[in-house]
Amino acid sequence: MKDLLQLLEDDSTLTHAQLAAMTGLTQDEVSEAVAGYERDRIILGYKTIVDWDRTHRESVTALIEVSVTPQRGEGFDRIAQRIYQYEEVESLYLMSGGAYDLTVIISGRTLKEVAHFVGEKLAPIEGVTGTATHFILKKYKEKHLIFPVQEAQEERFVFE
């Protein structure tokens, strides 16, 4: 059986009543557990995956490889903090491998907006030694959700 967190990770729109029925807990137990997860920051928040390409709104996403000089006593955390404070930064990960250190994912309305962020905000941060920006051309899948419409099989009727 899936536990509360797994169910919520898959679909955060499930109501506490639904979650209670699915897990065999009472609704109060669910609400209490969820509140606990939120308080302990095990659940960070609830978001929606939007395919902006299906709307009129322009949007570009870029993945930026960032090389930095780690700082004494702080490692990468301090510099990471200076990067993730920017509203534009969607995701930020510290990477293994040695080719670069941080992966920054940012979204903007236009290519120019993203270029501006890299050139004016990211690159000048003290300790950042290099950036390489990769624009995302097409999204196929995010968080297990597939963007292209999947063709459906012909309707069929079986006597099962």
């Binding site: 899936k2 209670a20 699915m22 897990t23």
Partner: peptide
């Protein structure tokens, strides 16, 4: 099976 189990409980409860 895990996926079915949650739906099963939900529908029976409903």
């Amino acid at each position: 099976r895990d996926e079915y189990d949650g739906r099963r409980r939900f529908l029976v409860d409903g």
